[in-house]
Design a protein around this nucleic acid. Structure first.
Lengths: 143, 143
DNA sequence: CGGAATCCGCACAGATACTG
DNA sequence: CAGTATCTGTGCGGATTCCG
């Protein structure tokens, strides 16, 4: 490698290693996307977007999440700087989680995704029904 | 159940079953979110957002996806009405995939997510480094 | 070319038990 | 309350093969 030519590890070589490309498997931005385009991450972040919340409150709010996945995902989000962990040394200890400024930027996109899902659910359901009918007819025609 | 009280299956009972709640495990909107807040779905949809594309072109563009996951995810997206499948009866057959109007609405949110990831990657990396240093120091202090 | 079908491993998620 | 530790299983996803 030439002097003064810094190639960030994992960045696509075609661009000289300086352009992030989420479509390249080993690009850091792709790995970041894999962590945030995840159902638990999305639900945790948007929940914290409404209000700072304690561990068990989060667990109650996000139906179906296990304590393991909640703990694990929170740690990952904290490491990425999207969530801040606040510990109050009471007995027993009180821990709360809040969104960071960095995280709240991301939330806008995530919330738009959720809003779309709730707004267009009916269209999606109709599409599924139509698809299943076509499938069924095709299967019978062959069957 | 009372006459005239329609409860859509899976919708939370507290709201009379009429309000979608993505935080309820068995709500249809939650299941829809689980399908779209998925790494392959996000990459496929945003790729098709740029241009209509054939199967193998998609496979080449999205680094690391297997034929099985591409086929499977495309079918799921088609069933949800987000992607349209066009078959041209040449020999061998030519199949291309395009985003639907419904899907292109969603893409805006997904693309915002990707743009955020590429824009804030540096901040995330710094946060990770700081986190790892704290972890390390803590581990050494305990021994 | 664009898949479907099959086999298979292992990583991830759930359940359980325990701790400060 | 807020986790960690350990075990266990299973289903997701990769690899391979075959087909129209």
């Amino acid at each position: 490698m030439q002097e003064g030519t810094f190639i960030a590890p994992g960045y696509p070589e075609e661009t000289g290693g300086r352009q992030p490309d989420v479509y390249a498997a080993n690009c850091p931005t792709r790995q970041l996307l894999d962590r945030i385009a995840d159902k638990w991450s999305v639900l945790i972040l948007t929940t914290l977007g409404m209000d700072e919340m304690r561990f068990n409150a989060l667990k109650r709010r996000i139906d179906g999440i296990s304590q393991k996945m909640l703990s694990q995902t929170l740690r990952s989000l904290e490491r990425d700087g999207l969530v801040a962990r606040h510990v109050v040394p009471t007995v027993p200890v009180t821990v709360s989680y809040a969104i960071t400024p960095l995280g709240s930027e991301l939330i806008e996109a995530l919330q738009a995704m959720i809003d779309w899902a709730e707004r267009r659910m009916a269209d999606v359901t109709l599409s599924q029904l139509a698809y299943d009918v076509r499938e069924r007819e095709l299967a019978e025609a062959i069957g």
